[in-house]
Design a protein around this nucleic acid. Sequence first.
DNA 1: TATCTTTGCTCGACATATTTAGCAACGCTT
DNA 2: AAGCGTTGCTAAATATGTCGAGCAAAGATA
Lengths: 113, 113
Amino acid sequence: MSNYGSYFKALREAKNLTLREVEKQTGVSNAYLSQLETGKVKQPSPLNLHKLAQLYDVSYETLMEKVGYPVPQSTEVLANKEPIAAHGRLGALTDDEELELLDYLKFIRNRRK
Amino acid sequence: MSNYGSYFKALREAKNLTLREVEKQTGVSNAYLSQLETGKVKQPSPLNLHKLAQLYDVSYETLMEKVGYPVPQSTEVLANKEPIAAHGRLGALTDDEELELLDYLKFIRNRRK
DNA sequence: TATCTTTGCTCGACATATTTAGCAACGCTT
DNA sequence: AAGCGTTGCTAAATATGTCGAGCAAAGATA
C-alpha cells in the first residue's frame, strides 16, 4: 500500500489550493489529481510530476523518487537530503513526520492574524 | 516526427547485442524493444529507460531527454540557484515557518502515543 | 428557505505501455 | 535439400495514464 497520494494532497493543502486551481495552473485535470491523491494512480507521467513540482515548490527529483521512479545519482543527494538539512537542519524526516509537518504548515498559513 | 527509435537501435548495435540479449540483461521484452526501436513507442517508462541506460552505458538523463521527459537540473545549475536552500520536500518556507516547523517537530518527537 | 457555486469525487472513454505467443526470413549444419 | 535455431517483427491482450462529463455534499447568497 505505498500510498504517496496523501503526500500530494498535503502539498496542495499546504498551499491552500483546490483541485481546480491546480488544474488551472498545471493543466492536469482535477479528476486525475483526485485519483492521484486518493491512491488510484500508480505512476504519474514525469511531465505531470514536473508541472506539480513547479507549482508546489518541491524538486522534480523529490516527486520522481516519491512515486518510485529511478532518480539520477548525481542529483539524488541534493534532491533528498541536502534541502532538508538546508532549511533548518531538521535532519531526516520519516514519511509520517513529513505529512504531519505539511498539515501543520497548512494550519500555520490558514490561521487569521 | 521525433523518431528516437533509431537512436536506441544504434546504441544496441554499437554493443553488438540482439533484442533477446537485451531482454535477458534488462528484463524488458524483445517485443517491446523492437517497438521502441521502430518508433511505435512514445514514452517508455523511466524504469525501463534506467535499465537500458545501464546496459548501454549512457546516462539515464540522456535517455530521459531523448524521449522528451523533463530532465532534472544538473548539479551545477542547482548549486547556483539562490532559493534552493529554502526548497525541500515541504516546499518553499519562510524563516518564520521554518522556525515554527522546527518547534513543532520537536513536539511531535517528544509525544508518546 | 431556495438557489447558485464550489469542491472533491466517480464513471466511462480513449491513449499508451508492456507482455506473451507466434510468424517469416535468414543462416548453419547434416 | 531438409531441418534447426536465431533474429526482428507483429498481433492480441492486459494494465495503467489521463481526460471530459457529471453527481452529491457543503457553502455562499438571495
